[in-house]
Every structure is written in C-alpha cells, then in structure tokens.
C-alpha cells in the first residue's frame, strides 16, 4: 500500500510529513490552553526589552555612530522580523538537547521522515508568535519613517532580506545544534549565540572596528541578519570595509548559511549515542 509513496522525492515527502507533524504539534500545544497568552507575551517581552533599551538610549543620546533614531529603529525592526523567520518555523530547535538526552531522537530515526524536520516540529513554539507580532509590527511602523525612498524593488529586497536573515540565524543555530550529538549540552552555547544576536545585531556593526566587523560578517555571520541589507536600503554601503556588491547579495547569505548548518547537522547524526535504556 505504501508502494506509490516510495517514488516521492525526499523533499516532497518531507513537506508532506511536516504538515502532518506540525498539525500534531499545534494540537498538543492547544491542549495546554492557559499557557497560550503568557507564552506569546513572553516572546514579545524577550525581544521587546531590546527595543525598549534602544528606545530609551536614543531618547537620551540621539545618535549611534552617525545613525539617527529612525534608522536605528528600522534596523532593529529588521532584526526582529528576521528573528521571527527563524523562531516561528524552527523555534523547537532550542530543545535539541532534551530531544537527544531523553532519547526522542530514537523515535525520529525510526520514522520515514527527515530527522531535522522532526526535531523542528517537536512542539509548536508558541512564544514565537510573540516574536512575530513584535517583529512584523516593528517593521511596519519603522520602515515608513526610515530614510529610505521606498520603491517596489526595495520592498522586495526588504522581504528577501528578512527571510534571508531568518535563515542565517537558523543556519547558525542548526550548526550549533549539530554539536549536541557529540556534547552533553550545547544549550549555553546556543543561548550565547542567540543572546549575542539579540543584543548586538541591531547596531551599525562597523562601530565594532574593522576586525570586529569582519568577524561578525565572515566567522559569526551576524551582519547578514540585518545590518548588511539595511546599508543597501539606507544607501550606506560606503560605510562598509567590504565591496558593496556583497551587501547587495546579502539576502542570498541565508540559504548558504542554512545549507551549511543543515549538512553539518545531518552529518553529526551519525555520532548520536542513544541514551542507555
């Protein structure tokens, strides 16, 4: 009876499986109804404090590294929205350590669907809805006020950049999650990455000196999340110590970083040592 399905390509099969698993995840999340509101609020507060932080500071200081309040706010909004493109679909990646330590991965390896897919559909990340609400809200509010002459082309670039930025963050987190198959726990490492991105990817990164900027572009590619595309939209690519075309291509950084992270993750599954039972 399953004969026809075997001819499906793995990608189509995974898409089908993700629909099935996501539905299960949401159904389970809804069975705890009380937590719904507090989770969404939690998500908004998590990122909201950063917005508050930058708002309070700019009210006192007016400029950061030559950027005015409206452009910084737009940059922060971009970073928040990009983050939503990571946490809404991939938020459950956060629980990779539990998935491994409790042996849930056993089950994923036994089923006819991708392991990564099953990890990210472990549960529905309710909190991510808060992130999304805040992020898209911030872009909607701050984009018109930024010093950008909006054209349809720029809007398309913005959307591509947000999705790409989300994938950059996803790729980095996926890579680190892959290490969990070897190490007891990578939670602190992943929180460190998340926290660093949360706190610093919304600044004009060239302020961290030439070497700081280059490491945040090529080693820990945080610059791709919001700053590089923002320099394109704001016409500030001259600030960059790298060629401008790289900033114009920055939305493509997402798929590249994500692919690297995913390949690494899948390779590391071989090191999985199922907890003894």
């Amino acid at each position: 009876m399953a004969e026809q399905v075997k001819t499906l390509s793995p990608i189509r099969e995974d898409l089908r499986a993700s629909r099935i698993l996501l539905r299960a995840g949401w159904r389970a999340a809804m069975s705890y109804r009380i937590s719904f509101l507090s989770a969404i609020l939690g998500g908004m507060v998590l990122q909201g404090t950063q917005l508050l932080f930058i708002g309070v500071l700019l009210a006192k200081f007016n400029v950061i590294d030559g950027w005015r309040l409206n452009d910084i706010a737009f940059l922060f909004g971009m970073r928040l929205a990009a983050h939503a493109f990571y946490v809404v679909p991939f938020g459950a990646l956060l629980s990779i350590d539990q998935a491994i330590q409790q042996g849930d991965v056993d089950r994923y390896l036994l089923r006819p669907a991708g392991t990564y897919l099953q990890v990210i559909t472990r549960y529905a990340p309710l909190m991510a809805l808060g992130d999304a609400l805040l992020g898209f809200g911030a872009v909607a509010v701050f984009a018109p006020q930024a010093s950008v002459d909006w054209t349809p082309g720029k809007v398309v670039f913005l959307i591509a950049a947000l999705v790409g930025g989300g994938l950059v963050e996803t790729g980095m987190q996926t890579f680190l999650a892959g290490l969990s198959f070897r190490m007891t726990s990578t939670m602190s490492l992943r929180i460190l990455a998340d926290d660093t991105i949360t706190r610093f990817s919304g600044y004009p990164l060239t302020m961290f000196s030439r070497w700081g900027f280059l490491s945040l572009t090529f080693i820990f590619p945080m610059a791709f999340i919001a700053y590089l595309p923002a320099t394109v939209l704001l016409g500030r690519t001259d600030d960059l110590p790298i060629p401008a075309w790289l900033a114009y291509l920055s939305p493509a950084g997402g798929p590249v970083v994500f692919a690297i992270g995913l390949v690494f993750f899948n390779r590391m599954i071989r090191s999985y040592t199922s907890p003894g039972s």
Binding site: D106, R107, L110
Partner: peptide, 12 residues
C-alpha cells in the same frame, strides 16, 4: 517498540 520509552505523542 522499546519498553522503556514510548513512541507515541505524549500529549495527544
């Protein structure tokens, strides 16, 4: 089937 660990969806 692993006796120690369920493969079912815990909350459903």
């Amino acid at each position: 089937v692993f006796g120690q660990r369920t493969q079912l969806w815990y909350d459903l």
